[in-house]
Amino acid sequence: MFGSLSDFSLGELFQVLEQGEKTGRLTIYSGRRGESQKDRISQTPPRNYYIWFRRGFIVAAANSLDNQGLSKLIDQRSWIEGGTSVLAPGFCNVNLPLGICFKSHGLITAEQLKLLFSVQVLRQVCQLFTLLHGRYHFDEKAPLAYPEMTGLSAPATDVTLAGLRNLKDWSALEDKLPEPDSAILSLVEGKPHLKLNQSELRVWEFADGTVALKDVAARLDLSLEKVRKIAFRLSVVNLAEEFPLLISASDMMNLSLDDEFVDDENNLFFMEEQAVKAEAPVRKSNSQEFIAPPPMSDDFLQELMRSLNNS
């Protein structure tokens, strides 16, 4: 799985990795594809960032593959006398997270591990949401980096929520934001399991698929842009999904089909007639109103299959 963050944003990527319960290593290249040195002048030099996932949870992050990131963080804090380098090779089992190993030997505490995880993962990964044009590659075969792991983990969506809340430049996500005419529909039973802020909770109250976001904005006296951003956040953390509403009667009246089109397909004409004369659909979900045209007969379907198989 690889591509550009401008096509598939980090939040969406985290959503897929969490929902797909993926294990592997996500690499983020901060430079654009094919970007020259001249293009990069005055910009931060491109770097690679690595994030390890285990069954959809983020377990470690680093900006190099030297397996020294976590040790450096510990050494910077002088939590182990003489530094981690004084420990004999093989001190820790290679298939055990370094943090767990150090904790089990009484070298660092649980609280210190939490702090390390916060610095290494939460803070570092949240910064990556500001990358607008990076590229990504997820390698499902890459082994977990135990020397970089504290033993703690966080759902990818927790990190997404924090990352997107702090995002200032949304230009790369502009065409991903839910449409003003769409509503949002809850994907969870009851209250959200994630801790939402006040604005998010207010928008969340409308996650029943009946109120267009532009009307939500008006009712809450928030800008439409802000409501769309919140709706996007709620959707990438799997709390809600965008629910397109039918175009309103007044919008439909603005659409007048001319009669230049001539064809002998009655069915097509029927469709067009219906398009123009359709009784004014209203801006609500009608989510319970399932349409069930009569199914085709078994005989019809059998004959169609035979025809298709012979074509």
Partner: peptide, 22 residues
């Protein structure tokens, strides 16, 4: 090969599946 359209495809599916069970 167009991951940028997956979200839009999902939007279509949501719409369709809430309108019809065919």
């Amino acid at each position: 090969n167009r991951p940028n359209e997956f979200r839009y495809s999902r939007r279509i599916l949501t719409f369709m599946q809430h309108r019809s069970r065919v």
